[in-house]
């Protein structure tokens, strides 16, 4: 991917694949906030990338890649809503959605990108840290429940969660797209 005078051009399939890997899941979860259906959201994002793929040779992104994908996914979602009449969308509601969606992607897409990076970063945690962190964040168990479940002290659970968070922050800090 080359960048000249703030213009981005995708020059190979490998570059496209990297963009796909980085943005696919965040975009699906972002769209799902509105469609409330993961399969539909997945279809919208696939369609977004297909359109991007179709014009990849001529595609020159003038803003940020994140902003381009956000706008493109948003427009595809509106098209999908009109086509499938999802959520009983009528024009007023479409306008409402469009109005509620900020033009700047930073405030809306970034959290999904961070969550996506957090998921990936979990793989780099120590097994014990990861296990306790997952029980806490994914299973929603309290520290006491985790302590009882793993037959360890509550303090040990707290330590493991703290270490996990600190590790995740360090991993994300190395990602230029998350913490600048």
């Amino acid at each position: 991917m080359s960048q000249k005078n703030n213009l981005i051009k995708i020059e190979s399939e490998q570059e496209f694949r990297e963009i796909f890997n980085q943005y696919f899941n965040p975009l699906v979860n972002f769209i799902n906030q509105y469609l409330q259906n993961y399969e539909d959201s997945r279809e919208v994002v696939q369609s977004t990338f297909l359109k991007m793929w179709d014009k990849k040779d001529q595609l020159v992104i003038q803003t940020s890649l994140k902003n381009y994908l956000y706008r493109s996914a948003k427009n595809n979602m509106i098209d999908f809503m009109r086509k499938h009449k999802k959520l009983n969308i009528i024009s007023d509601e479409e306008d409402k959605i469009l109005n509620n969606l900020p033009d700047n992607e930073e405030s809306i897409l970034s959290p999904y990108l961070i969550r996506n990076e957090l998921i990936k970063a979990l793989e780099q945690l120590k097994p014990k840290n990861k296990e306790i962190f997952l029980l806490s964040k994914f299973e929603g168990l309290t520290y006491e429940e985790i302590a009882n479940h793993l037959n360890i002290s509550k303090r040990t659970v707290e330590d493991n969660v703290s270490r996990a968070m600190s590790s995740l922050k360090t991993i994300l800090k190395n990602n230029p797209n998350i913490f600048k």
Partner: peptide, 17 residues
Amino acid sequence: TVFYESNHLKTFKTYNL
């Protein structure tokens, strides 16, 4: 940020890329 976003991981669905 890590603390807050990690609280939403439960609802973050990931597809096999």
